[in-house]
């Protein structure tokens, strides 16, 4: 650790994490290594694949494109914050019902992206869902089942 280390305190899924880190440490690595929350995945580390998408202060964000030090004082939600204990939330449940995942590597990013999307658009069309997830690459599903999952979650959440 160099002399340039910075203090960082962030609240992730309701827990406060404090530590010091080099300025260059990405928020994604901070979450994975310092906080042990490995559900946030690294698929490209240049902001294209979306696997590391998390919610920072209410907005979906690429964790590989933020430095940990920039998140000081922020409220963050990661995929680990979605389920209630051992109970999946309706969006997760919809992915399960609709085979919205295969290898599961892109899934945390998809879920976080869709979480933000459904808050702003509770009655989306299939085309809107496609646009919503177009910044998240999936190599397994061909996307159709993910679109179906998000639409089904929207319906469930409207009930």
């Amino acid at each position: 650790m160099s002399d340039d280390s910075q203090a960082v305190s962030v609240t992730i899924n309701g827990h406060l994490y404090s530590g010091t880190c080099e300025p260059r440490l990405t928020l994604a690595d901070f979450i994975r290594h310092e906080c042990g929350l490995t559900g946030t995945h690294l698929g490209c580390e240049h902001g294209v694949c979306g696997a590391c998408t998390i919610i920072v202060d209410g907005r979906s964000t690429r964790a590989c494109l933020m430095l940990a030090v920039q998140a000081d004082g922020s409220e963050i939600t990661t995929v680990e914050g979605l389920a209630n204990g051992a109970e999946l939330n309706p969006l997760q449940e919809a992915f399960w019902n609709n085979h919205g995942l295969q290898c599961g590597f892109c899934t945390p990013g998809m879920l976080m992206c869709a979480t933000e999307f459904l808050e702003g658009n509770p009655e989306p069309t299939a085309d809107e869902v496609r646009e919503c997830i177009s910044g998240n690459l999936c190599r397994c599903t061909g996307y159709a089942s993910i679109v179906a999952s998000v639409l089904s979650a929207a319906e469930e959440l409207r009930r």
Binding site: T38, G39, L88, Q92, N97, H99
Partner: peptide, 19 residues
């Protein structure tokens, strides 16, 4: 049948090699 693999992957509890 829904997949037995899914709940932990959906919860961010998967364990990939870098994890």
């Amino acid at each position: 049948v829904r997949r037995t693999e899914d709940p932990r992957l959906l919860a961010g509890r998967g364990e990939y090699v870098d994890d």
